[in-house]
């Protein structure tokens, strides 16, 4: 019984394993083992590539697939134009890549491939990954801000119309909230994805353990848990989209700060 319980360890799904004996691959002294996480990044990239490739037919009257791809590019384009304005168009490649990469990673990580013996790995549930993406977005904000406005970019910390005596109080608060951005950006995605997967795993352990404990427990605990899992799966699909959207939306809002200072 103890061995069975260990099997449904809700955190086990996040374990990183090197694939194909790549444990000791190194680059400049750093380990770069090709892990299951890297594998799913590769799969995400390939699937995303194929998805966008299907939208490259460049027909005047689009087919369904082309329409779908164009809907996504138009969605990002509209979002950037609404938040940043005309200058936002040049960030479409980055924000589109970010949004679609996260979206596909989230969705692919939810695929029920475990039935076929392939265990999807949701790399967006690792803060090393979301943190890097957040740092990239934050770096773009800093680079664009200082590039366009120079040291004047620091006036971001003094909101428009702040009375002069309030500046010494407001500026540190604004500065802290600004510096917290990359953390909140990265942690939000990481936490949302991890929580959803843990919840599903915990519920599945209820189903398994409840059913193992007998028909009565199976009906009393297992069945409701299973029904709840179905609902949570739908919710997780929604969360996968929302978190990718939030990441892209916040990135575009932060870029707006840098692009149009006040």
């Amino acid at each position: 019984m103890a061995a069975e319980q260990a099997k449904v360890d809700p955190m086990y799904q996040f374990t990183i394993q090197a694939l194909g004996g790549s444990d000791n691959w190194e680059l400049a002294g750093y380990n770069i083992a090709f892990t299951n996480s890297a594998m799913w990044m590769l799969i995400t990239t390939v699937v995303l590539f194929l998805f966008v490739l299907g939208g490259m037919k460049r027909e005047l009257v689009p087919g369904r697939w082309q329409m779908m791809v164009e809907t996504f590019t138009g969605f990002i384009d509209n979002m950037l134009e609404a938040n940043i304005g005309k200058a936002g168009r040049k960030y479409v490649p980055y924000v589109f890549s970010l949004f679609m990469f996260i979206l596909f990673a989230n969705l692919l990580g939810l695929l029920p491939l475990g039935i076929a013996g392939i265990h999807p790995f949701t790399f967006t549930s690792h803060f090393t990954v979301t943190g890097v993406l957040a740092i990239i977005s934050f770096s773009i904000v800093l680079i664009v801000g200082f590039w366009r406005h120079g040291l004047h970019f620091f006036s971001l910390f003094v909101p428009h119309g702040t009375p002069l005596p309030m500046v010494p109080v407001i500026a540190p608060i604004e500065f802290i909230s600004f510096m917290v951005r990359p953390f909140s950006l990265g942690l939000r995605l990481f936490v949302a994805m991890m929580a959803g997967h843990v919840l599903l795993e915990v519920l599945s352990s209820f189903v398994i353990d409840g059913t193992n404990a007998g028909a009565g427990f199976g009906l009393l605990v297992g069945l409701p848990s299973f029904i709840l899992m179905i609902g949570i799966c739908a919710l997780e699909l929604l969360v996968a989209g929302i978190q990718a959207y939030v990441f892209a939306l916040l990135t575009s809002l932060y870029i707006n700060d840098a692009e149009n200072l006040h």
Partner: peptide
């Protein structure tokens, strides 16, 4: 144990995504 590999492969694959898909394909779609 894993942060360097995570960061490295993310940069590789997100880089491919950005330069090939974001920079190469999206502008054509748009």
């Amino acid at each position: 144990d894993t942060w360097s590999s995570q960061v490295f492969w993310l940069l590789v694959f997100f880089g491919i995504t950005f330069f090939v898909i974001g920079k190469g394909m999206v502008p054509k779609v748009m």
